[in-house]
Design a protein around this nucleic acid. Structure first.
Length: 425
RNA sequence: GCGACUGUAGCUCAGCUGGUUAGAGCGCUGGUUUGUGGUACCAGAGGUCGCGGGUUCAAACCCCGUCAGUCGCCCCA
């Protein structure tokens, strides 16, 4: 057997391995989300990580790049066309239709998990990334939009990042509004076609509304002169936007109007919002969503109003403060023959709710070193007592928490002699 | 898809305008110090300088390609 020099495999581009603080931050975001979402009455929904290609191809309206170039699409062994989900909403909509969840409407659902998009990685952008997701299905009231935004706001507050994040808000109006306004916007840019940047001239053909958020300095002047949607609101659309703003006001949620905030797809109606930070570079949207009343009907289900958002876990994880580590203690046998007792002691302490990790080293000395390396809050030494029959458990440096000592004493009572040790300074 | 920058031990990096046996810290391993709130000592292992070509008497240092990373553009469901 010759040792063929093989290069070890590498993780696929745009994926990440996480451990330690990075993983702890990630975890913290998810735990906080789950806590807050329950506080707001959002139930958990689980949908597949892969779906029939049609689920996303149809929801995205066969749009150019997104569908054709940015989805992980494959054919399985049975010949079925599948894609790794690039977003949550379409899968949830599919499940809503397929399972007849309309009987449960209005439904407040939340999910989180991995999503996949074939894009060039950059700061805050990965090919496998993770999002939190919240949706209200089957509610047409502006109050649902308020509710969903309030959940997002509360989440950011609980994560301690609300201070550096701004809520921007817009309305796409109803279909009549949208159609009239987008036609006016397209006409406006068409009239100044020659002055547009190269990118925006192309957008004129593909998605004129996107010119509104062009980063090109030359486009800015033309963007500033573009028609505002407010002039095109139908009475109903205007009233809806009013109700939304009143609801946010009543909820104590601050926002900034961004009349240029748009969604490319036709099934978006009324509310569009993004929570944005300046501290993450180009990918500053931390949480974004809107009302998509047209989607479920578009996918072949009953006409169903819905509103929701998704938030990037990686991006939130970059913003949150380093999570404080919970105190973890260790048990060290002073001599090899006391190892059995060390196991018993570990079990008793854990059952008493004291976090215990064991260190894997034969020598007690090395175990002490490891307890320092892993920053244990304290050590419980299992020693031979004065009377050789009863081993002694001695607590050393059990944090600042007297309760740990008390709980340990209680847990070990009757089985081991316990000493809180000489806490000499 | 486009652009800029980067790629040296497990990790973080140093290596002057190309010059001969490639360095440090941390980590790891072994030993010493008979052992207790991250800070002791000694020794050791570990690198085809991302990969492949090229220029040169000579390349980790220059050129081309490729892969990967970072940041930006594009896209953004």
């Amino acid at each position: 057997m010759s040792k063929a020099p093989q290069k070890p495999p590498q993780k696929p581009r745009g994926t990440q391995d996480m451990i330690g603080e990075t993983a702890a931050r990630f975890d913290h975001v998810i735990e906080t989300f789950n806590r807050v979402r329950k506080l707001h009455g959002f139930g958990r929904v689980e949908v597949p990580v892969f779906e029939a290609t049609a689920v996303f191809a149809r929801s995205l309206g066969e749009t150019t790049d997104v569908v054709s170039k940015e989805m992980y699409e494959f054919t399985d062994r049975g010949g079925d066309g599948l894609v790794l989900r690039p977003e949550f909403t379409a899968g949830i909509a599919r499940a809503y239709i397929e399972n007849g969840w309309q009987q449960l409407a209005p439904l407040k659902l939340a999910s989180w998990g991995p999503l996949f998009r074939y894009e060039r990685p950059q700061k805050g952008r990965f090919r496998q990334f993770h999002q939190l997701d919240a949706e209200i299905l089957g509610a047409a009231e502006a109050a649902a939009d308020v509710e969903v935004i309030a959940l997002g706001q509360h989440l950011l507050e609980e994560l301690g990042v609300a201070g550096e994040i701004e809520l921007t808000l817009n309305s796409m109006g109803d279909p009549d509004t949208r159609a009239a306004w987008s036609a006016a916007v397209a006409a406006h840019f068409q009239a100044h076609r020659g002055d547009l940047s190269e990118d925006s001239q192309r957008r004129l053909e593909t998605n004129p509304l996107r010119i509104l958020d062009s980063k090109d300095a030359a486009d800015q002047a033309l963007v500033a002169g573009a028609p505002q949607i407010d002039a095109y609101f139908t009475a109903e659309a205007g009233a809806f936007f009013e109700r939304l703003q009143a609801g946010l006001q009543a909820s104590g949620i601050a926002w900034t109007r961004n009349a240029r905030l748009v969604r490319g797809l036709d099934y978006y109606r009324h509310s569009v919002f993004e929570f944005i930070t300046q501290s993450l570079g180009a990918q500053g949207t931390v949480l974004g969503g809107g009302r998509y009343d047209g989607l479920i009907g578009h996918m072949g289900g009953p006409d169903t109003p819905a509103v929701g958002w998704a938030a990037g876990i990686e991006r939130l994880a970059m913003l949150v403060a380093e999570p404080t580590k919970a105190d973890v203690f260790t048990v060290i046998a002073d001599a090899p023959e006391l190892e059995t007792d060390a196991l018993v002691v570990s079990t008793l302490l854990r059952q008493a709710g004291i976090p215990i990790e064991r260190h894997f080293a034969t020598k007690a000395k090395r175990q002490i070193e490891l307890s320092k390396k892993f920053a244990n809050a304290g050590i419980f030494f299992v020693k031979r007592g004065d009377d050789a029959a009863a081993p002694l458990v001695q607590a050393r440096y059990p944090g600042d928490d007297r309760r740990v000592v008390e709980r340990a004493a209680l847990a070990l009572a009757g089985r081991y002699n316990f000493s809180a040790g000489d806490q000499q300074g």
